[in-house]
Design a protein around this nucleic acid. Structure first.
Length: 568
RNA sequence: CGGAGUGUAGCGCAGUCUGGUAGCGCACCUGGUUUGGGACCAGGGGGUCGAAGGUUCGAGUCCUUUCACUCCGACCA
């Protein structure tokens, strides 16, 4: 393609709302254009990259017998009511009505639609297994869209769904998808890690996330230094936590703790390790149909509440803050909250690490008083669960190694769904004994547009993008140093034609601009291989440069074609 | 949702405190010079100042309302 014919509106200045490298360079390189909060247009270059990434995804999926379909973007709300997700999915689900006042949703994911499609057409176990996918727009009304393509509201996603006659076959497909996803991300040139994950609103049991490692990632992942264990913080587990300091010995009693409210202050005041202090976190839990209740979560002072785990422990949709007034009404005193001798009637969930705990310090629900020598026995605990966040330095439950944090960008997520959707939606088939059974399902997603951002997050420098081989919009960028030099132009055109014949995609900068100007654009756009045709052409020499390297290498024009083919 | 901030030309900004002809840089158009690191000279086009209402002889500027966008937080008790 000729630069002069393409719409590539590169920007010299950084749009003021962009903070992340991928956002900045995708905008500045003329790949995308912002049109509203979390909404982007893809300009010609961006569209080419998107299509290339999409093609890699499709090739690998088709190679393992997945079949591409395309589902309607607008989904009747009735399907979402049947699955129970109309309420469950929360505010991210964009709902609207048509002129006849029927409810619809803009699909954030398409389990319901796909199950419906299969239910109408698949009746026998002989038609199974099936793996159907689509690569289509999704809409999620994010609380706070940010970082460009990383967390937009409208985005391109590959969502796949598999249907099986039994659990074993579903697990086989799950493993196959894991391998396929690894191939896809490897081909795209990404450094990533597969981690254990929480299933969230999608539901189901085992799920794994594919995390591209990048400091700008929004997810915290816990990895083991010694073994392969890796998990999203929302799902990470650890070996039992212990404390090297002895249990403080104290008889159960109420102690005056004037204005001592925080865990740190308490630790200081009593000279005990926070491990022996009980932290009480009150949250309002939201359920379906607007129901809500206040729940008290009890942890060791050395831990912090992991909200997703806490949410799962009580099967709530969401946890939100509670106002101080609401707490006071229940008899909970901010700064001195506790669950010992608790007379108030609310749900109290304690972390597993508190089972059989003794010698603890906790709030007395009275201003300026705490209890010492408290035990979990004395508390009116509804149930124990894993609700604490794994901390850096905790011990790996697999190998005893040390756990650390790293940041990741979630680009893929695969779930073992089981019959979570097929049962409520009555998607059934006849097995070999003629018995009716719900499909056993898996679901598999890839954030295709987010991948563009992830690639740039991992591959850029201070000058601009550096696309990987399979994601680059073109194989080669030709710079004609002086477009008014007839020699250069003639030669550039002839090599451009020859490369095209060899099926190498080329962007040729034929604009009547100065050399420096074109180089800046070239670096911003980030095609990995650059051919510079300059003054030395008169001596039969041109320069081949890699985007990642400072200097290029000179070649005689007789040798250049073979060299380019060799590199690409 | 809570807090903070910003809306003025395609982009980045000044002007707002103290009301009085709409500005600057980049980009764009014309002509010329220049062509290995975002050139130069000359000329030119482009904005109902986010929207609505109000105060005033007069509002980008003051008041009220509203919309949009961005950032930070929503991990303490």
């Amino acid at each position: 393609m000729r630069f002069s014919n393409l719409l590539i509106p590169t920007l010299k200045e950084v749009p003021n709302d962009a903070t992340l490298a991928s956002h900045i360079y995708l905008l500045r390189g003329g790949f995308i254009q912002g049109v509203g909060s979390g909404l982007y247009n893809f300009l010609p270059l961006g569209k080419i990259v998107l299509d290339k990434v999409r093609a890699v995804v499709k090739e690998e999926l088709d190679a393992v017998n997945a079949q591409e379909v395309s589902l309607g973007f607008v989904t009747p709300a009735s399907m979402w009511r049947e699955s129970g997700r109309f309420e469950k999915y929360g505010k991210e689900l964009l709902r609207f009505t048509d002129r006849k006042n029927n409810d619809f949703v803009l699909g954030p994911t398409h389990e319901e639609m796909m199950v419906n499609m299969v239910k109408q057409t698949v009746k026998s176990y002989k038609q199974l297994p099936l793996n159907l996918y689509q690569i289509n727009l999704k809409f999620r009304d994010e609380i706070r869209p940010r970082f460009g393509l990383m967390r937009g509201r409208e985005f391109l996603m590959k969502d796949g769904y598999s249907f099986h006659a039994n659990e074993d076959d579903m697990r086989r497909e799950f493993a196959l998808m894991e391998e396929t996803y690894k191939r896809i991300f490897t081909r795209l040139g990404l450094e990533f890690r597969v981690v254990e994950a929480d299933s969230g609103a999608i539901g189901g049991s085992g799920s794994k996330e594919f995390m591209v490692l990048a400091n700008s990632g929004e997810d915290t992942i816990v990895v083991c230094e010694s073994c392969e264990y890796g998990a999203n913080i929302e799902a990470a587990i650890r070996a039992d936590v212990t404390c090297s300091e002895a249990v403080p010995s104290a008889l159960f009693s109420k102690v005056s703790t004037p204005n001592i409210k925080t865990i740190d202050e308490l630790g200081e005041f009593f000279k005990v390790n926070p491990y022996y202090i009980m932290k009480s976190v009150a949250m309002r839990a939201l359920y379906d149909e607007g129901r809500s209740e206040i729940v008290l979560f009890i942890l060791r002072g050395s831990d912090t509440l992991e909200e997703t785990k806490a949410c799962n422990a009580i099967k709530a949709n969401e946890l939100v803050e509670v106002s101080e007034a609401d707490l006071n009404e229940l008899g909970l005193v901010v700064g001195f909250m506790g669950a010992v001798e608790q007379k108030i009637d609310i749900k109290i969930i304690a972390d597993n690490s508190l089972q059989n705990a003794v010698g603890m310090i906790c709030g007395a629900n009275e201003i300026d008083y705490h209890f010492v020598g408290a035990s979990s026995e004395a508390m009116n605990i509804s149930s124990y669960d894993d609700i604490a966040a794994v901390l850096e330095g905790d011990v790996c439950s697999c190998c005893g190694g040390k756990l650390t944090y790293t940041k990741g960008i979630e680009v893929g997520h695969i779930f073992q769904l089981g019959t979570r959707y097929s049962e409520p939606l009555k998607a059934e088939f006849l097995d070999e004994n003629g018995k009716t059974k719900p499909f056993v399902m898996g679901t598999y997603g890839i954030g295709v547009s987010r991948l563009l951002a992830a690639i740039i997050e991992q591959h850029h420098d201070e000058k601009g993008c550096i696309w990987t081989k399979e994601s680059s919009p073109f194989d080669l960028h030709i710079i004609v140093s002086n477009s008014k030099d007839e020699n250069q132009t003639t030669y550039a055109n002839s090599i451009y034609d020859e490369l095209k014949k060899s099926n190498i995609s080329v962007l040729i900068d034929d604009r009547k601009e100065r050399f420096g100007f074109k180089m800046k654009d070239c670096e911003l756009i980030g095609i990995p291989n650059i051919l510079i045709i300059g003054q030395k052409l008169d001596d039969g020499i041109v320069e081949l440069k890699e985007r990642t390297k400072e200097d290029g290498v000179e070649f005689k024009i007789e040798a250049i074609l073979a060299e380019i083919k060799n590199r690409i």
